[in-house]
């Protein structure tokens, strides 16, 4: 069996939000809703670190539908509108069947399901991304036009993966932090990464068996201190070379004063 999943290398993720924007564009996600988000693991605000200088820590956690094998949303949906596709293991949603009760949103622990509270608006107005419609057994599971009153979520770019392409967030990631593949194939890149780097899943204790694996970040406080030291060494050598080689007396004075300050702080 094919079980498509995502692997996200948290050491490579730079929190640039490209995957979030790429997803929004490709899937014509309306204003105010996001299928794919990048969370900050650090301070209380986006892009802030925890701790105080120099003992700080920050990394990013991109989050979208985890395509759980034991998905609470699938069990909760009263009309089987959301279901797990047997052929690829993805969790899909029949747009035209959704009654809009939002029980799936109560059931999902990852907060990745969004509701069209009003008639969706787009920027630009005519919308963006893939314009086709994807059907599964007669029911629309992807359409760029999703009306008010229905829930929607990441389809793992069903229109792309059924066409042999990677999901758009994976293709667009500039840091190459995202990987897509078959988790049931032991030789796939994703399976190997999960095995080699001890991939973990979000809220694994809830037993939802998500198919999104995260490769834990190795860098953090310690590597940041190293980075700082490397930076100070670089500044130190540059300033030293200015002091010893420059003929400009005022520049020399500034450089030695700066060097003194840098060394004091270091």
């Amino acid at each position: 069996m094919v079980r498509y999943g995502l692997v996200i290398d948290l050491d490579r993720c730079i929190g640039c939000q490209t995957c979030a924007i790429a997803c929004k564009l490709e899937n014509n996600v309306s204003l105010g809703n996001w299928w794919n988000r990048v969370l900050t693991v650090g301070g209380s605000m986006i892009d802030t670190s925890s701790g105080s200088y120099p003992n700080t820590s920050i990394f990013y956690l991109p989050i979208t539908c985890q395509h759980c094998d034991n998905a609470p949303c699938v069990k909760a949906c009263p009309v089987s509108g959301t279901y797990r596709r047997e052929e690829d293991g993805t969790v899909q949603l029949r747009i035209e069947r959704c009654v809009g009760c939002r029980y799936c949103m109560a059931a999902c622990p990852y907060g990745v399901r969004v509701f069209n509270w009003a008639e969706p608006k787009h920027l630009p107005e005519h919308g963006t991304g893939y314009q086709g419609v994807v059907k599964d057994e007669g029911w629309i599971i992807y359409s760029p036009e999703r009306p008010k009153g229905v829930v929607e979520k990441c389809t793992l770019c069903i229109h792309r993966i059924t066409d042999g392409q990677e999901p758009f967030c994976v293709a667009m990631c500039p840091a190459r932090a995202r990987f897509f593949g078959d988790l049931d194939d032991p030789n796939s890149k994703v399976s190997k990464l999960v095995k080699e780097r001890s991939g973990v899943r979000l809220l694994e204790e809830l037993g939802t068996q998500p198919k999104t694996y995260y490769l834990p970040p190795k860098r953090g406080k310690q590597s940041f201190t190293n980075l700082y030291e490397a930076f100070v060494k670089h500044v130190e050598s540059t300033l030293t070379s200015i002091i010893s080689t420059s003929s400009d007396i005022s520049l020399k004075a500034i450089a030695s004063a700066t060097l003194k300050r840098v060394l004091q702080r270091g």
Binding site: P78, V79, S80, R97, C98, V99, G100, Y103, N116, P147
Partner: peptide, 23 residues
């Protein structure tokens, strides 16, 4: 009034999911 698409309420009978506590 809680439903986003109340006109589809008959789907609860037509497509009822036996695992859903709502059903």
């Amino acid at each position: 009034p809680d439903l986003g698409r109340p006109e589809r309420i008959a789907y609860l009978i037509l497509y009822g999911n036996p695992l859903s506590p709502l059903i």
